[in-house]
Nucleic acid binder design. Structure first.
Length: 263
DNA sequence: ATGACGTCTTGTAGACGA
């Protein structure tokens, strides 16, 4: 079972790379964020030609999230929007059931700056996420996406440069910790406790090639899935080449559940 | 490094991203 997440920074601009990703990795689930798809503009036909089906939550110019799965095991029981979110028109959360797992694709608000009203909105969104994952506890759960929070200083190329800024503040990290406390595990850090692994690099100033990035895209999994998690990695090849997103995709391999767990 | 880059809009400069 291969679960992937990728902030594509416009699905329209990135469609060739997304199709390339599906062909390369054949994920069982792909959560995408920042589709920026128009309400009636999601490229369902191209996705279908690639052998996938998509559940999407689209709002036009900004945000937009989706869950892709193979056409013969498509996402079902789709719920759009995060209960309790303030801005219900922003298309930042979608849930579906895939392969017996409840899967959410999420694009957490950026927050702009610590003293900007949008920052309080970001904290409220993270609070609403924790309430939702607590409500979903007890089933196999995957929350994957752009959390817009770097969990620890080890996930930041220059922690000092971010002091006083968003993505690394104590308030954001406390919210992320509370989210994990509802019964979720940061799969990458769980499997790669010491590895520096960034998922985002600024387009400017050659940051990617200078290895100046952040780990802000996460796959959070319930404890039963964490126990079956086998490997987690970032495919940096998709941050290279023609018209890359500023984010690289994150992939998690999970062993199949054994039908009879004898011991 | 103050900026650098990329995407979108009924656009051609400004907002936004992180």
């Amino acid at each position: 079972m291969l679960v992937a997440t990728w902030n594509v920074n416009s699905l329209k601009a990135r469609l060739p790379r997304v199709l390339e990703f599906l062909a390369t990795h054949s994920p069982d689930v792909l959560c995408i964020q920042e589709t920026k798809s128009a309400v009636d503009g999601f490229p369902h036909d191209a996705v279908a030609e690639a052998g996938y089906a998509a559940a999407e939550h689209s709002a036009g110019r900004w945000a937009g999230v989706a869950i892709l799965a193979p056409r013969d095991r498509p996402p079902v029981d789709v719920v759009r929007g995060l209960p309790g979110e303030v801005h219900t028109d922003e298309a930042r959360w979608i849930e579906a059931t895939v392969a017996g797992m409840r899967v959410a694709s999420v694009y957490v608000p950026n927050g702009r700056a610590l003293d900007h009203p949008a920052f309080q909105g970001k904290l409220a969104f993270l609070d609403a996420m924790a309430a939702r994952t607590a409500a979903l506890a007890g089933q196999s759960l995957v929350v994957a996406g752009d959390l817009n929070v770097a969990p620890a200083d080890a996930d930041v190329y220059d922690p000092a440069a971010f002091v006083g800024g968003t993505h690394t503040s104590a308030e954001e990290r406390a919210r992320l910790a509370a989210l994990l406390d509802t019964g979720l595990v940061d799969a990458y850090r769980h499997l790669e406790p010491e590895t520096v692994g960034y998922t985002w690099w600024d387009y400017r100033a050659g940051h990617f090639h200078k290895k100046l990035g952040l780990r802000i895209d996460l796959v959070l999994v319930s404890l039963d899935l964490a126990a079956r998690a086998r490997s987690c990695g970032i495919d940096r090849n998709f941050r290279k080449g023609s018209k890359p997103s500023d984010h690289a995709p994150l992939l998690l391999a999970i062993a199949e559940a054994r039908a009879s767990p004898g011991r």
